[in-house]
């Protein structure tokens, strides 16, 4: 008897549901409006974190992305791989693993040829206001706050060069806007961080111990629905006495190959790294998303 009631209930429900209100339709973000994966795993540009939430899903679903990035510099290689999920276009959780290969420079620095620094980066981001893409009648950008906890693996070397900790946490506020009437994408991020070279050389140092405020800025122009070209600038702390650290910059092209894949290519300037001058090179990133 009970089962009959249940069956009847289900039948009524299915009859009452109009065809148009059927299942959730998958996806729903326009191409490139989820940004690309930054080297720290958060949705953003290549170097900067943006306020956009990773993955192709809207307020109605859970999406995600995965990336693999290679930055080939004159004396070093930086590799990054990671995943991110975007929940209801509101919350983003990310993880990235970075490897920094010192190649021949490792021997010159007394670390040994091919000595490698690495770090884990666990991130969370919350969209707090605005919609970068759809609110085209308002100047209000999309705002997100985020946190990135970083765990570097070479604690002994980090303290030997004057770093205070091998773990650190960045906090940031990001604003991002697509100005569609001008085919332009703008993003800026304010970051409180102690990280030396993104955290690979630890957190805090013998020149400066604590947090400092750093800025990330990105500007791009849409040349087609699937092609964004632009430039980024990111300031970094200069905490260690043994080596100067400067700002990073890049010019990039992000191309959505299709709904689920994109390639970002950039020319990147990371400045001096661990006394080795002028690290400028190529940035190549592959990303898949759903």
């Amino acid at each position: 008897m009970k089962r009959h009631h249940l069956a009847l209930g289900c039948l009524c429900l299915s009859l009452a549901t109009p065809a148009v209100a059927g299942d959730r339709r998958a996806g729903g973000k326009l191409l490139l409006t989820n940004g690309v994966s930054s080297v720290e795993g958060a949705a953003g540009g290549g170097l900067a974190s943006w306020a956009l939430i990773a993955g192709n899903e809207t307020r109605d679903g859970i999406g995600g992305s995965a990336h693999a990035t290679l930055v080939a510099l004159p004396d070093f290689d930086l590799e990054s791989a990671g995943v991110a999920i975007g929940i209801n276009d509101r919350v983003e959780l990310s993880y990235a693993y970075q490897r920094f290969d010192t190649r021949a420079a490792g021997a010159a620095l007394g670390l040994g040829r091919g000595f490698t620094f690495a770090q884990h980066i666990v991130g969370a981001k919350l969209r707090i206001a605005g919609d970068a893409v759809w609110d085209q009648d308002r100047w209000l950008p999309q705002f997100s706050i985020g946190v990135q906890h970083k765990i570097a693996d070479q604690g002994a070397v980090i303290s030997a060069v004057g770093g205070r900790s091998s773990r650190g946490t960045d906090f940031y506020l990001s604003a991002t806007k697509v100005v569609l009437a001008r085919s332009v994408v703008l993003a800026t991020t304010l970051r409180a961080t102690k990280a030396n070279q993104f955290g690979l050389l630890g957190f805090g140092g013998d020149r400066r111990r604590g947090y400092s405020a750093q800025v990330e800025g990105s500007a791009g122009i849409l040349l087609s629905p699937s092609l964004l070209v632009g430039a980024e600038l990111r300031t970094k702390p200069d905490n260690l006495r043994f080596a100067r650290e400067q700002k990073a910059a890049d010019v990039f092209a992000a191309w959505a190959i299709g709904r689920h894949a994109s390639i970002t290519a950039a020319f990147v300037d990371l400045g001096d790294i661990a006394t080795i001058r002028r690290q400028r090179g190529a940035f190549l990133s592959l990303q898949g998303s759903f």
Binding site: R25, G28, L30, T58, D60
Partner: peptide
């Protein structure tokens, strides 16, 4: 009204 349109549908229309 009453079409049950989702955000993803508006993106499909834009495309």
């Amino acid at each position: 009204k009453d079409m049950g349109i989702q955000q993803a549908d508006t993106a499909a229309l834009v495309e």
